[in-house]
Nucleic acid binder design. Structure first.
Length: 854
RNA sequence: GCCCUCGUGGUGGAAUUGGUAGACACAAAGGACUUAAAAUCCUUGCCCUUCGGGGAGUGCCGGUUCGAGUCCGGCCGAGGGCACCA
């Protein structure tokens, strides 16, 4: 009998149309339903979708479908992170307007996403470059401005000389621009900032409430925020000509008696007094000379510049400390000044050795005599007992810290203080393709926020990219305007907002996508927020997630509904990898251009020999990419989705392979042919009661496993269980009486279970069997614990912990009965002959361990 | 340098709380069907074996336990984050 194949090309098109026409993935407005907000990180419209998108949205789609079948009102939207530099770069290179380029990319990518059959509510689609989006963002900017969370300051910024723009600290990777890869230089500019540091404590503490976030991500954020408890201490500085007071910050106030110098940052206010001297100029120049990479900075030799100040030690009369400027002290952290305790800090020790300063140990390691304890080249950083420290002597480090802070506070020379590594978020970008900052500079010098009624501040469309720099700045008319209150002349802010601002609230916009008045409606947000499951790449573990957590708080504080944590559950998926191919002369080669001949590989056109490199994350530059669209055409959307869920756990990297996708295709066909076999049963006969129970148990077990594995993101295990089921099911189907009704009943349940993974083939078979297009209206099946209970068990029989035999036993037997049975097993008998049994262990329905004397 | 995670067959990986290691898939070898191929299906997978079974085995060394991939200590290796943060 010939069996017809599943034709994905026809079936997928048919179901896409049906789903779209009937809007079956539309979220309901009925706020009485139990909701589930499933969100994947929205894409940047760079051109075409890539395998990373496919994986991301497939993972999310399984969850969305699963939750819908479980009776949730699911919000599963899609949008476009559509402002950003590539659009401008494309405009410069191809003379194409960024808007046109962006919109055409969105069209392409949208049609590609639709090919995969994702259950997206397209009615809620948004795009951050639309003024219907960014006008609300400008309103939020003004709100934050009113709340005092936005400020402008002259600051040294990371300047990318290739992209001609400012970069946030986070966008500088190893001293290079994250996008251009150019060496970043320091430049002074007046910049807008969000006061994210205002929320440092809250952002840090609240991480502990995020129980459905990966520990790894929470830890990365903790490290980034970098909270440290310490103490601020006031020192009196004197020189022959003046007296000063300065504050220093330390986390080791307990080592105050080991202090031997004060070190200041090069740009500390006191530096003003030395700026004119040649020696200081030279010192400053030298410290700026050091390489750009963080690593190079960290390994640079410590050096300093001695001032003519001395500092009075706070507790030792007549003891003064020399005051230096030092290249390793940062103005941005703490107070830009420290006291050096060489014995217990490596940098301080290096510095002290260089300038022959005192090294007084004040912490004695446990178990070492004071007379034998010497500091040579390594500082002692661990805990111990305080020595040489007057009233602190004999205490351990923690106690000493406590006591000394109390003492400082009592004598009014310092106080306990917490500092953070986190800095404020610089949001100004000297770029055209971004959200305009709604600010005016009036001719009298006043800075005026654009009134709400004048929003949006629209981007002009007639722009010129021929000159370098920001086209908004040299636009002939756009920036010239008047003050709405006084009528005085005014100039618009020509910087635009960092695109991370766009993505810091888009999840809120999805709650009220089509609302024209507000960025989001409080009632909608109350219902939908927080996002129940957020899925995306781990590369956003710090920036995007931290900014979003801050921005949600900032814009919703003082409103009726404060959104502190926007993402309840977070899942970070791994990357899609592929082998890399290079010709012998070092040219990267696309996988489809590589041919195999007798175990050797050649480039298709040139016939050059190909060297196969390690599997790496797919990237255009290395050409180790596979185009999703081509694969979908060939194998179908279900096969591609199935591949993305198979084998590798979703949090780990996955290796793309041609064999793998072919295997997935085979499995889809196998499901199809299994359904054909059932439908073609012509001589239906009743099945035996025993087989009937077996079948019931099979589907019941599958139901439990799939439910459990979806809930825990073990999609690869779920896939394995589906394979196992189909293997067993077809075996029973082939070996037994063919009871059509029973098989159909169980296969229907199987189709519901697999629908979230491979919706097209599931719908097609469902319709074929049931003559209805209503698979999506089915209820997720429940499983019966009673059916999971077995009447027979394989009980492992161990002797001294080693497996020796297996005992097939019915349930209900007592421990003693089972023990006697196991003693009767040939293998066991042989091994315990003439040996003394010392002990026996029984694990119910699982295992017997007989311990004997060897 | 500091912090974190992970080491299981040829490969991707599985293994609720410590309780049959290697599920499932890919690749390979052999076989069945076929004139042939494709497709499909079956078998095998380290060492020894009298074919009943026995032995070794989850990066390395040691420990706890009746029993360790799983827990503890120490190494080695890979990946990721931070990086002059006082």
């Amino acid at each position: 009998m010939s069996v017809e194949k599943f034709n994905h090309l026809v079936a997928e098109k048919k179901w896409h149309k049906f789903w779209e026409d009937n809007k079956i993935f539309k979220a309901s407005d009925n706020k009485k339903l139990k909701k589930f907000y499933c969100l994947e990180m929205f894409p940047y419209p760079s051109g075409k979708i890539h395998m990373g998108h496919v994986r991301n949205y497939t993972l999310g789609d399984v969850i969305a479908n699963f939750k819908r079948l479980n009776g949730f009102n699911v919000l599963h939207p899609m949008g476009w992170d559509s402002f950003g530099m590539p659009a401008e770069n494309a405009a410069i290179q191809n003379k194409l307007h960024p808007k046109k380029w962006t919109h055409s990319n969105i069209e392409t990518m949208k049609s590609q996403l639709k090919l995969l059959g994702f259950s997206i509510d397209w009615d809620k689609e948004i795009s951050t470059c639309d003024e219907s989006y960014y006008k609300h963002q400008q309103k939020f900017f003004l709100d934050l401005y009113k709340k005092g969370l936005v400020y402008k300051k002259e600051s040294l910024v990371n300047w990318d000389p290739v992209d001609n723009t400012v970069l946030a600290n986070e966008q500088v990777v190893d001293g290079k621009g994250w996008r251009s890869g150019a060496n970043v230089i320091q430049k002074k500019l007046s910049q807008w900032f969000f006061k994210i540091t205002e929320y440092a404590e809250d952002l840090n503490q609240s991480l502990d409430t995020l129980t459905n976030w990966p520990e790894k991500v929470k830890l990365m954020q903790k490290n980034w925020i970098g909270k440290s408890k310490g103490c601020e201490i006031e020192f009196d500085l004197t020189s022959s000509s003046s007296n000063k007071k300065i504050n220093i910050f330390t986390t080791r106030p307990d080592t105050i008696f080991g202090a031997s110098f004060i070190a200041l940052a090069i740009d500390h206010p006191i530096a003003k007094e030395y700026e004119q001297t040649d020696e200081f100029k030279e010192f400053k120049e030298q410290s700026y000379k050091i390489g750009n990479t963080d690593e190079a900075i960290a390994k640079t030799e410590k050096f300093g510049f001695k001032t003519n100040y001395v500092a009075q030690h706070p507790f030792i009369k007549n003891k003064t400390l020399p005051v230096y400027f030092a290249n390793f002290v940062l103005m941005e952290y703490g107070t830009g000044a420290i006291f050096g305790c060489p014995a217990h800090d490596q940098r301080d020790l290096d510095f002290a050795r260089k300038y022959k300063l005192e090294v007084t140990p004040v912490i004695l390691p446990k178990g070492i005599k004071q007379s034998e304890f010497k500091i040579n080249k390594e500082a002692y950083l661990e805990d111990g007992t305080l020595i040489n420290s007057e009233f602190l002597n004999g205490l351990d480090v923690d106690k000493a810290k406590e006591l000394i802070i109390e003492k400082f506070e009592r004598v009014n020379k310092g106080k306990g203080k917490t500092t953070f590594r986190l800095r404020d978020w610089g949001i100004s970008r000297q770029r055209y393709w971004g959200c305009p900052i709604p600010i005016l500079y009036r001719e009298d010098g006043a800075i005026i926020p654009v009134p709400e009624k004048d929003l949006p501040v629209r981007l002009p469309e007639d722009i010129n990219f021929d000159k370098p720099g920001n086209p908004l700045d040299h636009h002939p008319t756009w920036k010239f305007t008047t003050c709405p209150e006084t009528g005085m002349k005014a100039i618009r802010e020509t910087d635009t907002l960092d695109t991370f601002v766009d993505s810091s609230w888009y999840f809120l916009r999805f709650c009220s996508s089509n609302n024209k008045e507000k960025g989001y409606e409080i009632d909608d947000a109350k219902y939908w927020m927080p996002v129940d499951q957020y899925i995306g790449g781990v590369e956003h573990a710090i920036l995007h997630l931290l900014y979003s957590r801050f921005f949600s708080r900032a814009i919703s504080s003082d409103t009726e509904f404060e959104i502190r944590e926007p993402f309840h559950g977070l899942f970070t998926q791994g990357m899609v990898c592929h082998k890399t191919f290079k010709t012998e002369d070092g040219q990267w080669t696309y996988p489809e251009d590589v041919l195999e001949k007798d175990g050797n590989f050649f480039e298709k056109n040139s016939n050059k020999k190909i060297i196969i490199g390690p599997s790496e994350s797919m990237s255009k530059s290395k050409k180790n990419v596979v185009d999703p669209q081509a694969v979908i055409n060939m194998y179908g959307a279900d096969s591609v989705r199935w591949f993305m869920l198979s084998d590798s756990p979703p949090e780990r990297d996955i290796q793309w392979s041609d064999e793998g996708i072919a295997g997935c295709y085979k499995f889809i066909q196998k499901i199809w042919s299994c359904s054909e076999k059932i439908l073609n049963i012509s001589d239906s006969k009743e099945i035996s009661a025993n087989e009937k129970t077996n079948l019931e148990k099979l589907i019941n077990k599958l139901t439990k496993e799939i439910t459990h594995n979806i809930e825990n993101f073990h999609f690869n295990v779920a896939v394995a269980k589906f394979y196992e089921f189909i293997n067993n099911f077809t075996k029973i189907l082939n070996d037994n009486n063919q009871d059509k009704k029973i098989y159909i009943e169980h296969f229907n349940q199987f189709l519901i279970l697999i629908y979230p993974f491979t919706p097209h083939v599931a719908f097609e078979i469902w319709e074929k069997i049931n003559k209805k297009k209503d698979l999506h209206l089915q209820k997720w099946p429940s499983f019966k614990e009673s059916l999971l209970r077995e009447e027979e068990f394989n009980i492992v029989v161990q002797i001294n912990g080693k497996k020796r035999s297996i005992l097939l036993a019915k349930s209900g037997l007592t421990e003693e009965q089972l023990f006697q049975m196991s003693l009767g097993l040939d293998n066991v008998k042989k091994l315990i002959e003439n040996k003394k049994i010392i002990k026996k262990i029984y694990v119910k329905n699982k295992l017997i361990n007989i311990v004997i004397h060897e």
